[in-house]
Write a protein that binds this DNA or RNA. Structure first.
Lengths: 112, 112
DNA sequence: CTGTATCCCCTGGGATACTG
DNA sequence: CAGTATCCCAGGGGATACAG
């Protein structure tokens, strides 16, 4: 999906948050550092397969750090980096906008 | 892709702007009303197939209006609705965030 | 506990060809 | 001009099974 499209920083943002789970994972991590299993609990229905891939991408982009503890049983904690924390206001503005959207097909009526 | 995920308005937003072209199309329309062919010119490489589907979704969500002029040759203009215009600050905050992202650090995890 | 490996489905997108 | 119709490929997700 990498492109030679017209330059637009927004594209990178959407790449990072692609898919319906990405933002939900970030939202979980905004509550604080979480272990893999804690994330699964907070995201009912997500498959480990999906969760892993999203977390890996977040690592690549530097929005999440992964801390492995050499314990038995193994423990891994994920935490938002400063860059990741800066996603918060952006997600909030997205959510705020979404609130003004009635429902697809249900008319254009802009409230207010 | 719709499911009974934890309620999160952000999901709807991402649904609307899914794919690499969506935001670019919005950006074009932020410059003012555009015809189908004008959009194609402003979005080098996009296929009519893709452009049409994105515009249809925008209509469904009420962020874009479609005005057909019964002329010869036919003319169709797309324009952001008030709701669509309100996307601007959101996209800007996304773009601003993106500027602070250096580059995806490939190599952190296993390739997908 | 923390993942990885498959297999399958769905949707976005490209390319091409073809109408109203 | 403004699309629609196919066909194909990629990546996201779900489900399940299995490994370190």
């Amino acid at each position: 999906m990498d492109n030679k499209l017209p330059e637009c920083g927004v594209a990178r943002f959407l790449e990072l948050l692609e898919g319906p789970w990405a933002t939900l994972i970030v939202r979980e991590l905004l509550l604080g550092p979480k272990r893999f299993s804690e994330l699964r609990q907070g995201l009912p229905g997500i498959s480990p397969h999906t969760l892993t891939r999203r977390l890996r991408r977040f690592e690549e982009y530097g929005v999440v750090s992964r801390q492995v503890y050499a314990e038995v049983p193994p423990r891994v904690e994920y935490e938002l980096t400063p860059l990741g924390l800066r996603l918060k206001p952006v997600l909030e503005s997205m959510a705020e906008w979404s609130l003004s959207v009635p429902e697809p097909r249900s008319g254009v009526g802009a409230p207010q």
